[in-house]
Simulated scan of single mutants.
Amino acid sequence: MRADAQRNRELIATTALDLLARRGPAVSMEEIARAAGLGVGTLYRHFPDRQSLLDSVAATTLRTLLAAGRAEQSSAAPRWQVLVRIVARCTGLPLALISSLPDATRVDPTVADLVAELDALFQGLVEDAQREGSLRADLTGAQVVGLLNVAVCRPGARADDPLTTVLLDGLRARP
């Protein structure tokens, strides 16, 4: 791919990521092209349809989160702190996009694999925090991951918003 074409593709993906994180999955292709300072034709040359753009952004987002999660997982910090830091990281990403992708028959296999890896990482952290005694033990790892998805997989999610803070307060083990 030519250097200018590669720059345009990256610009489109970065712009889409930013708009989707701030406004949710309803952002139009035309809005993305306009915000990137490119024509709609350029956008469609790189991403032939909305789904291919969404799949690309979802895969990039999940890879970024997985790398951050693995780095956090290897830290010596208490598991509760690690989990809270990852949740905070999640709130800055367009995870609502991933939860809004069409049914499983159309989900890109790469995206599905990355979601499964992330779920496993989160479940492992949850189980570690439960063994540590910092997270309630009366829920399964899958249940906790499902609850965390409610908090972080929505447009405008923030680490300090009431839904996220109340949910984390409810998950925290009490002495």
Rank of each mutant, 00 (worst) to 15 (best):
Cys153His: 14
Leu135Cys: 06
Ile86Tyr: 10
Ala137Cys: 05
Ala142Phe: 01
Gln73His: 14
His46Cys: 10
Tyr44Asp: 04
Val166Phe: 06
Val87Asp: 04
Gly69Val: 03
Ala58Thr: 14
Arg50Met: 04
Ala157His: 04
Met29Gln: 05
Leu147Ala: 03
Leu97Pro: 01
Ala112Leu: 13
Thr165Gln: 07
Leu168Gly: 12
Ala116Leu: 12
Thr42Arg: 07
Val111Lys: 00
Leu163Phe: 05
Glu30Gln: 15
Leu53Lys: 09
Val57Ile: 13
Asp113Ser: 07
Val57Met: 06
Ala59Gly: 05
Ser52Pro: 07
Glu10Leu: 05
Pro78Cys: 03
Asn8Trp: 04
Ser134Lys: 01
Ile98Glu: 07
Gly170Asn: 09
Val84Leu: 08
Gln123Tyr: 04
Arg34His: 12
Val84Thr: 11
Leu171Asn: 04
Leu135Ile: 06
Leu121Tyr: 00
Leu148Lys: 01
Ser74Met: 08
Asp119Trp: 06
Thr105Lys: 14
Pro78Phe: 02
Leu114Asn: 05
Ala76Leu: 07
Ala35Ser: 08
Arg22Ser: 14
Leu168Met: 11
Arg172Pro: 03
Leu171Thr: 00
Glu72Asp: 15
Trp80Glu: 08
Thr91Ser: 14
Thr91Tyr: 11
Asp169His: 11
Leu114Ile: 03
Arg63Pro: 05
Ala112Glu: 12
Ser52Leu: 14
Pro102Met: 02
Leu83Gln: 01
Met1Tyr: 09
Ala35Ile: 11
Arg136Leu: 03
Ala173Asn: 06
Asn8Lys: 11
Leu97Asp: 07
Arg85Phe: 00
Leu163Thr: 15
Leu43Arg: 03
Ala5Leu: 10
Tyr44Leu: 15
Arg131His: 10
Leu65Met: 04
Arg9Phe: 01
Leu93Lys: 10
Asp103Val: 08
Asp18His: 13
Ala88Lys: 02
Leu11Cys: 13
Ala21Gln: 09
Ala104Leu: 07
Gln130Trp: 02
Arg34Gln: 14
Gln81Phe: 05
Ala59Leu: 01
Arg136Gln: 05
Glu127Met: 07
Val152His: 03
Phe122Asn: 04
Ser99Thr: 03
Asn149Tyr: 10
Leu163His: 11
Ser74Thr: 00
His46Tyr: 08
Ala112Pro: 01
Ala159Cys: 08
Asn8Thr: 14
Leu148Asp: 07
